[in-house]
Amino acid sequence: MTQTAKERPLRADAERTVRNILEVAERVLAEDPTASLGQIAAAAGVARTTVHRRFASREALVDAMAAHAFRQVEDAIDVARPETAPPMVALHQITANVIQVKSGWRYAVGQPRLTDPDAVAAHDRIFAKCHLLLERAQQAGLLRPDADLGWARRVYHALIEQAIIESAGGGEDAPGPDALASLVVDTLLGGLGPRG
């Protein structure tokens, strides 16, 4: 059985080229969502044929961007050890890491519908890890025993999105990921923490 181009591992230089195209495409499309593959190629400093060889269409490029971004988000979660670190430590570190990564991939992670199977799978794993973390926080008494964890997850994600907007709009004076993570966690736990 032959492997498809998508499954075949890339050489190191080709992998760097693809990563560069994805990162440049994020910047270009964040500024101009209607930008063409030709504009992205020019900004990346590669021939248009290089982009077309790697990505059959603009949609394929956006799918690859989303898959790459969600893999980075998942890695940012995993490095904070959501299953083993103390829940409060994991919650803060994951929040800071996710704010930092998603701030650099706002266009890719903001797509309304994910179509790439890798992006969908990573997205689903991220949600499962978030739910596990919130369960651990609830068991540790950080969240009320009767808190609806589905609602908590949606609120948590909305707070992270607001933190990303805050970081993007504040220029040099914008709070960093750690300060924003503290705001997100304090708001989440203040609203869902044990009643005093």
Score class of each variant (00 low, 15 high):
175 P>C: 02
99 I>S: 08
53 R>Q: 10
126 I>N: 05
113 R>A: 08
120 V>F: 01
103 S>W: 13
90 A>L: 12
117 P>I: 01
80 A>G: 10
38 G>E: 07
2 T>D: 02
67 A>D: 03
79 V>S: 12
193 G>C: 06
127 F>P: 04
85 A>H: 10
10 L>C: 01
158 A>W: 07
26 E>L: 12
34 T>M: 13
135 E>D: 14
52 H>T: 06
174 A>L: 06
125 R>Y: 01
79 V>W: 12
131 H>M: 15
6 K>C: 07
86 P>F: 14
45 G>I: 04
39 Q>Y: 05
85 A>C: 12
187 T>A: 03
134 L>E: 10
122 A>P: 02
171 G>F: 11
187 T>I: 00
38 G>D: 06
129 K>G: 10
174 A>T: 12
70 F>A: 00
96 A>G: 12
157 H>W: 09
136 R>V: 09
59 E>N: 15
158 A>R: 09
72 Q>W: 10
29 L>H: 08
86 P>H: 13
122 A>M: 02
153 R>L: 13
95 T>Y: 14
71 R>A: 14
127 F>Q: 07
150 G>L: 15
188 L>W: 07
169 G>K: 04
73 V>F: 00
61 L>K: 11
132 L>E: 12
54 R>M: 05
156 Y>M: 07
58 R>A: 14
67 A>Q: 03
140 A>R: 15
83 E>P: 07
118 D>E: 02
188 L>N: 04
70 F>G: 00
145 P>T: 11
46 V>D: 01
132 L>C: 11
27 R>M: 11
19 R>S: 11
91 L>C: 14
130 C>A: 04
16 R>E: 00
71 R>W: 07
21 I>S: 08
59 E>F: 11
195 R>G: 05
116 D>E: 05
164 I>F: 07
80 A>D: 05
176 G>T: 15
48 R>G: 00
80 A>R: 09
24 V>K: 06
40 I>D: 05
119 A>N: 04
104 G>R: 14
72 Q>V: 09
164 I>D: 00
32 D>H: 15
26 E>N: 09
77 I>H: 09
136 R>I: 13
142 L>S: 11
148 D>N: 04
111 Q>W: 01
116 D>N: 03
115 T>V: 10
49 T>F: 05
